[in-house]
Design a protein around this nucleic acid. Sequence first.
DNA 1: ATCAAGATTACCT
DNA 2: GGTAATCTTGATA
Length: 213
Amino acid sequence: MLTNAAWQKSVNSLPFRKIPQTFYQQAVLNVELKLLGKFLVKREEETCLVGKIVEVEAYDARFDEASHSFKGKTARNKVMFQEGGYLYVYFIYGNHFCCNVVCDKKEVGAAVLIRGIEPVSGIDVMSKRRFGKKEISAKELVNLTNGPGKICKAFGIRREENGTPLFGDTLFLAEGEKIKTTSIGITSRIGIKKAKELPWRFFIKENTFVSAL
DNA sequence: ATCAAGATTACCT
DNA sequence: GGTAATCTTGATA
C-alpha cells in the first residue's frame, strides 16, 4: 500500500489533466456533449484503469419522465440532486450497476449516464472482472465495456462508489480527444419506456464500443 | 406487508 | 429477434 504522499505524487504524475468541478456545474446537455472523448480514470491499489467515453445519455428531473429524479428526491436518487461533479450509481434488474455524472446546480436533478467506453489502460483487470480471465478474444474485447452495466463491472463501480466526487484523486474524468461535430451521432435513448422522443443519446460514430446503433 | 417495474445482460433459436 | 434472470426501490394498503 502506498503512503499518502506517494499516492498523491503518483496521481499527479499521471499524463491526465483532471476536469475541474466547475465543468460539471452547467446545463446537462452541454456537459453531455463535451463528455464524448474524455477519459474515465480510476486509481486502484495496483493499477490505473482508463477508458475513453464514446456513448452517453442525459436525464433531467425537470422535463424528462424517464429520469429517476423526475418525481423528486428519494433515498435512491438523492445524489442526482447534489451540485454537478459527483457520481450517481444505481442498481438495476437485480444484477447491474450503472454510473452517471451529476450535472448542473444543486437541486436540479440532472445527470449523464455513461453507456459506452473504449478501454485504454488496465484492460487485463477489466477482463478479469468481466470474464474471469486476463487474456480475452477479440470478440470478448468489443464486449468488454460497450454497455452501462458492463462498464461498472469492468471498472469495479458498485454501491460504494455512489456519491464519489469526480474532482477527487481516485475516480475522475480527464481531458481527452477533441471530437468533431460531424462524427457525433444523436438518437433517442435506449431501454426506456417514457419520454422516448427526447434525442438525448450522443455517441461517437463508427466507434466499436458504442452499445447499439 | 405486498407488489410491479426497471436507464441490462447473456444466452437462446 | 426473443426472453429469463435477479433484487432493489417506491408506491400503495
